[in-house]
Design a protein around this nucleic acid. Structure first.
Lengths: 222, 222
DNA sequence: GTCTGTGAAAGTGTTCACAGCG
DNA sequence: CGCTGTGAACACTTTCACAGAC
């Protein structure tokens, strides 16, 4: 039961997987700009990594490059999508149609990567039965039923911290394989379920720490 | 110009800072539950870290523990807040009042950590002049002016990927010290400005990769 | 006895540097 | 040549294990 960063799972460090997502994103931009191929050093420079890092990351999964040429963008996109699992569609259920949940229902970035939010759930009866950006809102009580009916693979938790663990438990019991948790609470899930947590305030704290470091370094140039 | 994870800045690894935020969050829960003190092993267990890791992380910044006792929750909260810089208030400006931006304006989790969104900006004239959750929406053209007038420290980018770099440039030119970027694009900022990127689709990809790993491991038990 | 703080050991991840291919 | 893939060197993080404090 390892370390600090992310999911847990296999031989591949989660930092590598994180970068894979970035490569994928950059490759899409590249392709949109009409570029056919890219070298590890060019790709790395755009994202702030070394060329060796890019090559090592990709080497975990196979031999995708062409010596003397680099990587073919479309080819590499396909390969990375296969690795990440986004070469297929994932059905997603969102729990908690508050401020954040509402925004996530309308977020375009998910669909383009193969994620389809097929159902939302909320404890508030006033919200149940609504249709938000094409997504129907169900009662929390019917979560298990709908997860099975709609073949929901992944759950997004967007409820207050207090209900985060209970929500995670319901999702797990209903049989989802993975959870993305936006509640500022570390939920625990059994082995066999993947979990990633995103805490927006925490992300801002990373920024302020970095700002503080600079201020402190400037103050005492020891 | 180092590695993969996060900001850059100083002698302290960004992974440590990430965990610091988690400790802080957990300590708040603990205090709310009436706990006065906590040991490194208890705190670690709750978050999935070892006791030694907790102690080492904190030791980067000082001697906050009491041998035989553990850490006093309120004391440690104060210390971590000082370290992260959240012992004071930060004025935040949000650019892009779309789906996501709108949700962030109403997000409660920011205020409790000392972040106050004091202004929002959008290129759409229909949104300008509105007041969303108590936050006034200005035109993008007036960004520099308002950043200075309202003493905005940090910028949040919630515009489409296409405008992300231009938005970052404007924020930097206006004089913010840090940026939290939600656009799915790696913006570049000059040294002297802190930057953290959050890509929601990327977070889901971390989940699917982990799910895929399990599936693949189950398929070929080599 | 409980628990912190910390050097030393173990373990991981990153970079270097070069052989080999196109 | 330019560029990948990769063992070996290096750097960094985490864990161990124990001295010292309560």
């Amino acid at each position: 039961m390892p370390n600090g960063s992310r999911t847990e799972g296999g031989a591949v460090p989660s930092a590598v997987v994180n970068r894979l997502s970035m490569y994928l994103r950059e490759l899409h931009h590249l392709l949109a700009d009409g570029k056919q191929t890219i070298s590890s050093s060019q790709l790395g420079r755009r994202l702030g990594f070394t060329d060796a890092q890019v090559r090592k990351d990709l080497a975990h999964f196979g031999h995708f490059g062409h010596p003397g040429i680099g990587y073919r963008c479309d080819e590499l996109i396909d390969e990375i999508r296969k690795i990440l699992g986004t070469d297929r569609q994932w059905n997603v259920g969102l729990v908690g149609v508050g401020n954040l949940g509402h925004a996530l229902l309308g977020y375009k970035g998910f669909a383009s990567q193969g994620f389809r939010i097929v159902a939302a759930f909320d404890a508030d009866p006033a919200k149940q039965g609504q249709d938000i950006d094409g997504v129907p809102v169900y009662s929390s009580a019917s979560l298990a039923e709908e997860v099975r009916r709609l073949r929901i693979d992944l759950g997004i938790i967007a409820v207050p911290a207090t209900y985060a663990q209970a929500t995670a438990d319901m999702l797990v019991a209903a049989g989802v394989s993975g959870i993305l948790n936006f509640a500022p609470f570390t939920v625990s899930v059994p082995e066999g379920v993947s979990k990633v947590g995103v805490d927006l305030a925490r992300e801002l704290e990373q920024v302020t720490f970095s700002v503080m470091s600079r201020l402190r370094a400037a103050a005492e140039p020891s």
